[in-house]
């Protein structure tokens, strides 16, 4: 008994046209280059998506008051080491202003739910700009992630790691 309700943008799904990401309300699709943009880490450092190239990265957009995001972060804490073993780092960022609703601060959210994995060098937490939120999450899903390979190409898209972790780990292993 397992009925899933996902964003369902995996590699086998229909792919939106390349280059139309964000602006037209279509999220970036598998096979396209991850759109560039800036985000700020909890340490206050400003980084870019393009700057992540050279190492496979999971870019995960969350909303801190969302229950599936909370559960997903707890699940990620269990598997961040497995992803790291496959050479994948995790960048978990808060959708801009929590989609306009009040929720816990990203630092509070991360420390409470990631536990000891919060200090992992392979897991970065941060907050994103309105533009990057609109680009990667144009439909305002509370939770959506992109697996990007070392060349900056998107290889897998889905949501709710608490329930999609096996598929995510499989996609990460395929990158290794």
């Amino acid at each position: 008994m397992a009925v899933a309700l996902h964003v369902a943008n995996s590699g086998s799904g229909p792919a939106p046209a390349s280059g139309s990401a964000g602006a037209s309300g279509v999220p970036p699709s598998v096979g396209t280059t991850a759109p560039n943009g800036t985000f700020t880490t909890l340490a206050g450092k400003t980084e870019t998506v393009a700057g992540l190239r050279g190492k496979p990265t999971l870019i995960w957009f969350v909303t801190t008051w969302c229950s599936s995001c909370q559960a997903g972060t707890q699940a990620m804490a269990q598997d961040v080491a497995t992803l790291a073993a496959d050479g994948v780092r995790v960048v978990e960022v808060e959708n801009y202003a929590d989609l306009g609703q009040s929720g816990p601060a990203m630092s509070t959210f991360a420390k409470a739910l990631a536990g000891s994995a919060f200090s992992s060098p392979d897991w970065t937490f941060g907050e994103v700009s309105p533009a990057l939120t609109r680009t990667y999450d144009p439909k305002a899903y509370l939770d959506i992630y992109y697996l990007v390979n070392a060349k900056g190409k998107i290889t897998y898209v889905n949501s709710s790691p608490a329930s999609t972790m096996p598929q995510l780990l499989g996609a990460a292993k395929a990158l290794a």
Binding site: A2, V3, H6, S68, Q70, S159, A162, S163
Partner: peptide, 10 residues
């Protein structure tokens, strides 16, 4: 259901 988006024993 809100945590996992699935109907399963997990």
């Amino acid at each position: 259901f809100g945590y996992t988006q699935r109907f399963e024993l997990a």
